[in-house]
Design a protein around this nucleic acid. Structure first.
Lengths: 364, 364
DNA sequence: CTGAAAGCGCTTACAG
DNA sequence: CTGAAAGCGCTTACAG
C-alpha cells in the first residue's frame, strides 16, 4: 500500500524548470503558454502523476463546480428519476452532485441546506417540504446563491422553479374518466397540509370559481383542483365524500384511505390517485378487496411506475416528465451560476396521459 | 438581492478584537480558548453572520468530510436503497455525499472516479461494473484512498467489500421450490459477462463439484451457482435448457428471455429470477402469456419491489438488505477514513426469503 | 509569453 | 491561553 505523496503544481514546475505560474497555466488551461514550455510541463506532470486539487482552485475562484440537491427521499422513484435528470446534465457539464434527503422534514431540510452551503456548492436545487415555512430558503436566496425549486413552490419566494402542470394533468385524467361515462370518481390524495377550512371548504371555493391561488399550493392540492375543474367543466356533480385524504406521504395511509372509500356503500366507479405513492397504496387496497379492473373499478394512476405497465390490464396513468424536470432544473441553475441575470422563471412541464387498460365503462 | 459579502474568520477576529488564530480556535472548535474571548468571538460571528468555508479548512486538513459514490443507476431501486443507506450514516456523521452513475459502463465509471478523486473525497464506495477490468480501482487503492466495494467484487483487489450472500440466497429460494414439489425450475438471469465456456460449461463444472471461484463472480453467476447447488443437494436433475440468460441489465431482455422460456414446450412449473430487473421483466412476460400464479406457474423473485406485495397473489421473493448494505459499507469506509488499520474485510449479508403467495404445488 | 509575489480562508506549529 | 507567522495548493494581477 505505498501511498504516493501527491504531486503539486510546485513539484511539476520544479521538474519542468518553469515557474508555478506557468505550470499552473498549462495544467489549469488558462492564460497563454508557448508550445515548448507546455510540453515540458505536460511531461513533468505525467511523470509525477500530477492530479489537480480542485479544493485549492475553488478556494481562489470561489467556484466549486458542484451543485447541491435536497430531495425528499431518494428511494422514492419520483426523486430517483429527477435526480437522474439532474445528474445527466451535471455530469455533462463536469459538475459534481452533492445529494441529501429531507424526508419531507423542515429541520432536516434546513440542516441539509446548511451542509451544502458550507461545502460551497455553486447552487442548489431543492424540493421544499413546506410551501410557506422556508426561512432558510429565503435567506439562501437573499444571500445571492443560485437556487431552483423543483416540484413545489414557496409562497412569496420568487426564484426559478420547475414543476408539473398539475392542474391540467389532473383535469385531463378526470375528464377522460368522465368521457368514458363515470360520474362517481373517487380521489385518493396526499393533501398533507390542511388548506384553510379543510378539503370540503377548498372544494366549495374551487367550485364557486373563487380564484384559488394555485402556484404555492402543494402538488396534491393542485391535482385536487384539476379534479374539481373537470367536474365543473363537464357539469358533473361532485360528491365530496369521494375525495379522500391520506394526510401523509405513505402507501399505507393511501391504502387505508382507499379501503375505506371502496368499502363504503355507493362506492365510486372510477378512481384517480394523485401521485405514485398514492397509486401504490390504492392498488394494494384494490387487490385486497379483489376488485377487477376495469370491470368493477376503472382507475387512472399518477407517475409511470414499473408495475403499471405489466400489472393486468395495464394501468392508465399520468406520467410526469421526471427526468426532464431534473434536467431542466439543472440547466436553469447552470444559467444562474453562469451569471445570467434572468428574472425568475416558472417552468411548468406537461404530464402525459399514458392510456393502458384500466379505464372502461362503468358497470351498468 | 443584496448579496452580502461573506464574513471570514479575519473579519470576526477584527470585530472581536482577537487574533485570527483565536477566532479560528473558537469557531473551528479546536484548541483552547478562555470563556471571555470565546464569548466575544461568538458574538462577533453572530453579528457578521459568519459561516465557515469548508474548502479552506479542507485544503489544510486534507479532509473534506465528503464521500464519493459510484452507483450503476440511481433510478434502479437497488441502488436507490443502497444510496439511502449510505446517506443515512453519512448524514449522521456529518459527511457529504457526492453521487455519480456509471450506467454499468467502464469508461463512465472511470470518469466518475476521477471526478471524485479530484474533488478530494475522503473515500469512495463503488459498485464496480467489471469484476476484472478495473485498473482505475486498483490505482485508487494503491494510492491509499479509502475504498469499499459494494454488491460486486474485483478479482485480486483486496479491499473492504459488502455484498449479499448470493449463493446461499439463491440456493434457499430454489430449495423452497423443490420442497414444494417442483422439478423443472426455470431461471432468468442477467449473466452479462460470459463465464469461461458459457453457461452450459459453468453449470457442468458446478455440478461436477469443481471448485468454482465464486467471490469475484458477478452476482447473477453466484445466484446461478446457488440454483445449481440446490438441485445437487436435492438430487434433482437439472435441465440446462431451463436456464436463460438475459445478457444485459434490462427488463426488456428479461421479458424476452422469459417469453421464450415459457413458450417452449415442456415449460418449467416454477421460475426463479436473479434480480429485481429480471423479476420485473419476467412478470411482464407472465402477464403477457396470461399464466396464473401459482396455478400454472410458481415464482420466486429477487429484491423486494413495491409491486410484489400487492400484485395478486403476492410474490414470494428474496429480499436483499439493500439499505443495511449501504449503511454497513459506509461504516466500513468511515473506519478506514478514521485511520483504522484493518485487513480487508468481506461482509456478506444474508438475504431474506419473504414468503407470499406465488409458490404452490406444481400442476399435476 | 513568463515569473515573482500576493492571496483565497482557513489551521498549525511555535513562542510567549 | 493567545498571537504572529507560515502554509495548504492553487490562481491572479502585475511587471517585464
Amino acid at each position: 500500500m505505498a501511498i504516493k505523496p501527491k504531486a503539486t503544481i510546485a513539484d511539476v514546475a520544479r521538474l519542468a524548470g518553469v515557474s508555478t505560474a506557468t505550470a499552473g497555466r498549462v495544467l489549469g488551461g488558462y492564460g497563454y503558454t508557448s508550445g515548448s514550455k507546455k510540453d515540458q510541463v505536460m511531461k513533468a506532470a505525467e511523470k509525477l502523476g500530477y492530479r489537480p486539487n480542485a479544493l485549492a482552485r475553488s478556494l481562489i475562484t470561489g467556484k466549486t463546480r458542484t451543485i447541491g440537491v435536497v430531495a425528499g427521499d431518494i428511494r422514492n422513484p419520483f426523486y430517483a428519476f429527477v435526480l437522474r435528470g439532474i445528474s445527466n446534465v451535471a455530469e455533462k457539464e463536469g459538475f459534481g452532485l452533492l445529494i441529501t434527503n429531507s424526508d419531507e422534514d423542515l429541520q432536516q431540510e434546513t440542516r441539509a441546506v446548511d451542509l451544502l452551503v458550507e461545502k460551497q456548492v455553486d447552487g442548489l436545487i431543492v424540493s421544499p417540504c413546506d410551501t410557506r415555512d422556508a426561512a432558510h430558503l429565503r435567506a439562501l436566496h437573499a444571500s445571492g446563491i443560485p437556487l431552483v425549486l423543483i416540484d413545489r413552490a414557496v409562497e412569496a419566494l420568487e426564484v426559478d422553479r420547475v414543476g408539473t402542470a398539475n392542474v391540467a394533468a389532473a383535469r385531463d385524467a378526470v375528464q377522460r374518466l368522465i368521457q368514458t361515462g363515470h360520474r362517481r370518481i373517487g380521489l385518493i390524495a396526499e393533501l398533507v397540509e390542511e388548506a384553510e377550512g379543510g378539503v370540503a371548504s377548498f372544494i366549495a371555493r374551487a367550485q364557486a370559481g373563487e380564484p384559488v391561488e394555485s402556484a404555492a399550493l402543494y402538488p396534491s392540492w393542485q391535482r385536487l383542483l384539476g379534479y374539481v375543474q373537470a367536474h365543473l367543466v363537464a357539469r358533473v356533480p361532485l360528491d365530496p365524500a369521494l375525495v379522500r385524504r391520506a394526510g401523509e406521504y405513505s402507501a399505507q395511509a393511501a391504502e387505508h384511505a382507499c379501503l375505506s372509500l371502496l368499502s363504503a356503500e355507493n362506492r365510486p366507479t372510477a378512481l384517480f390517485t394523485t401521485d405514485g405513492t398514492m397509486s401504490e397504496g390504492a392498488m394494494a387496497a384494490i387487490a385486497k378487496l379483489g376488485l377487477t379492473i376495469p370491470g368493477q373499478l376503472s382507475m387512472i394512476g399518477f407517475d409511470d411506475l414499473d408495475w403499471m405497465a405489466f400489472l393486468p390490464p395495464g394501468i392508465t396513468t399520468v406520467a410526469q416528465p421526471r427526468m426532464a424536470m431534473g434536467e431542466a432544473a439543472t440547466r436553469m441553475l447552470l444559467e444562474q451560476i453562469a451569471g445570467a441575470e434572468i428574472p425568475p422563471r416558472t417552468l411548468l412541464m406537461p404530464a402525459q396521459l399514458i392510456e393502458r387498460g384500466s379505464v372502461g365503462k362503468p358497470a351498468a
